[in-house]
Nucleic acid binder design. Structure first.
Length: 576
RNA sequence: GCCCCUGUAGCUCAGUUGGCAGAGCAUAUCCAUGGUAAGGAUAAGGUCAACGGUUCGAUUCCGUUCGGGGGCUCCA
């Protein structure tokens, strides 16, 4: 099936190229592969094309498909291929790059393409209503910004109309959940281009979520044997030279500022600061493991074109930690971190998690035995937890192997969040040691880890996962108290005060709006519990409860409701 | 950074071949005593991103700059 759809998509790409050839004389062809949700083809057009052209091209594609053109494979010699594509500089370049042997071309209609195949037999196998041209985008030839920029046309393509529609529906759903849109609607955060793109401003409501999250995060870290550090935001160049960042991470660091006669850099990572603390005293094996965590705010340069809401920013807070331990402890430590991470994702309501194990790249530092031991401990931990995983061969950083965890959200998208990385670089550079049982100075292992990744990015994923309707414990407003008429404002205030006294974030909606408008407002703000009260409730000291999920229960004793809400909040329940 | 699209009130958007700017929501004031997703009226709110050009006249056309969105990894 997977191969079939890929073949169809690739064939669609050829049909699009044929359509383009018919419509635009002198066009030069790049490449046109199948991709995850369709296909694209890169062209060099003689004149600029716009979105308008997409419809024209689509129409021509449908016309071609209606002719039931066959895809015909032929094998030609290198010389013949050069002759066939003599006017196609990109194809000629591709031919030069081909290994010895036969060169295949595919023909359909009056279009010929250099192509390995395979393709469908005929355009008959392609559904004219199962594709849709998406966008025009610029793309450098072979992804190299020094080469010419071609015009790439992206398209969605599926085996059937139903599949295409289901996919488009998912995209609509993604748009509905877009954290930038919800962030604005729910008044959670903002960004300000005039004050600097890629920098996040947390509003009071976003702040509430963050404070609750961090409070929990700190408690969990203390429970799991961590200590929490606070370190500076800037450090002298000595620090970054020692850590090596000025060597291998400079492109992501901001220009230094001068203080007195020294250059200081704003931190892109927290680790060198933690190293400094480690170095303030000598350490015995008895002190290890050390688990030092910090919600450390770092700044990294990202090119302007890649910034995206909360997901890709220039300043963010990592939920960072460094684990410093002996070789004997490393396996247990990795397992502990992995378990800790999984338990956090479970509490947050993310159920499907997949691991990616990245191994040693060609250029790397550190002794091979350490790499081997590290990899074994990573793999064992994954196995013990029974996580599905893939191996990313050679995908580790030069300073150590790592596990990345990707979590799947409510609409099936995977997000890379947790990362657990060995570091064989900094312990050397900072000459970290501990005194072992035998009285000798030894080099500890160090692991960097971030569980949520960054608070900003996590919040973005969290917003999209829940479409803004978070579990009650993380909701900025947990209860909306709505009197049916101003006559009952006093009782509403009393109920609100009562709830707030118990630590529940309740707000009385006392404006002159009608009750219906207040309910609508509370519902749009996704407040989990709406408490509605009038004469009957006041007389009986009860409330009428409406849930944001639509359920409704009348005549609940105030105490009973309070107990229920408290229970859901304190247990971090995912339901109401 | 580069390519395509885009920039009108706090927000979401209209604005028809260039003729002194519009709606809804939100805000303010007033009226409405109301039972589970918008009660009504009035008012206030904009150098139409900025700068330059064409024109009698530019939100509208052209250019530049500054933002925003989608791409720039998927190798015949």
């Amino acid at each position: 099936m997977a191969a079939d759809i890929e073949r169809m998509r690739h064939s669609f790409a050829h049909v699009m190229a044929e359509a383009v050839q018919h419509l635009y004389g002198g066009v030069k062809f790049g490449i046109g592969p199948a991709i995850e949700d369709g296909f694209y083809y890169d062209f060099l057009f003689p004149k600029p094309v716009t979105d308008e052209d997409l419809r024209t091209i689509e129409k021509e594609m449908r016309r071609i498909m209606a002719q039931n053109q066959s895809f015909v494979r032929e094998e030609v010699s290198r010389e013949q291929a050069r002759e066939i594509f003599r006017d196609q500089p990109f194809k000629l370049e591709l031919i030069e790059g081909l290994e010895e042997g036969t060169i295949s071309i595919y023909k359909q209609g009056d279009f010929v393409d250099l192509c390995r195949g395979p393709h469908v037999e005929s355009t008959k196998e392609l559904k004219a209503d199962a594709f849709k041209l998406k966008t025009i985008a610029g793309a450098y030839w072979r992804g190299d910004e020094k080469r010419p920029m071609l015009t790439r046309i992206y398209a969605y393509a599926f085996a059937s109309k139903a599949d295409l529609e289901a996919y488009l529906h998912m995209l609509e759903e993604a748009e509905r959940r877009d954290h930038r849109k919800l962030g604005k609607e729910l008044d959670l955060f903002s960004t300000h281009e005039e004050a600097g793109p890629g920098l996040i401003y947390w509003h009071p409501k976003g702040g509430r979520v963050r404070v609750e999250l961090e409070k929990w995060w700190r408690e969990e870290h203390y429970k799991n044997g961590y200590e929490i550090l606070f370190t500076p935001h800037i450090g002298k160049s000595w620090l970054w030279e020692t850590s090596g960042h000025l060597g291998f991470y400079k492109e992501n660091m901001y220009s230094p500022m001068k203080i007195d006669e020294d250059e200081y850099f704003i931190k892109p990572m927290n680790c060198p600061f933690h190293m400094m603390i480690y170095k303030t005293s000598s350490h015995s094996y008895r002190d290890l493991p050390l688990r030092w965590a910090e919600l450390g705010t770092v700044y990294r340069y990202e090119r302007s074109g890649v910034l995206h809401g909360l997901m890709r920013v220039r300043g963010f807070t990592q939920d960072d930690a460094h684990i410093i331990c002996t070789p004997e402890q490393i396996e247990d430590e990795i397992l502990e971190v992995l378990r800790f991470s999984l338990s956090m994702w479970k509490t947050l309501g993310f159920k499907e998690i997949k691991a990616y194990l990245a191994t040693r790249p060609a250029d790397s530092v550190g002794e091979p035995e350490r790499w081997d031991q590290a990899l074994v401990s990573l793999r064992k931990a994954i196995d013990k937890e029974g996580l599905p995983y893939e191996i990313d061969e050679g995908g580790g950083a030069f300073y150590g192997p790592k596990i990345d965890l990707k979590v799947k959200d409510a609409i099936g998208r995977e997000w890379q969040m947790t990362t657990i990385q060995f570091d064989f670089n900094e312990p050397e550079r900072f000459d970290m040691t501990y005194v072992d049982k035998d009285g000798k100075q030894k080099r500890p292992y160090m692991v960097h880890r971030a569980l949520l990744g960054s608070i900003e990015r996590f919040f973005g994923v969290f917003i999209e996962h829940y479409a803004g309707a978070f579990p009650a414990w993380l909701m900025p407003d947990q209860v909306a108290v709505i009197p049916v008429a101003p006559t009952f404002d006093e009782y509403a205030k009393e109920v609100t005060a009562n709830l707030r006294g118990k630590g529940i974030r309740a707000k009385a909606m006392l404006s002159e709006e009608r009750m219906n408008a207040k309910i609508r407002d509370a519902q749009n703000q996704k407040i989990p519990y709406m408490v509605i009260l009038g004469q009957r409730e006041q007389d009986e000291r009860t409330v009428s409860l409406r849930l944001r999920t639509g359920g409704q229960e009348n005549g609940i004793a105030l105490d009973a409701f309070t107990a229920r809400a408290l229970e859901k909040i304190e247990t971090k329940a995912l339901d109401l």
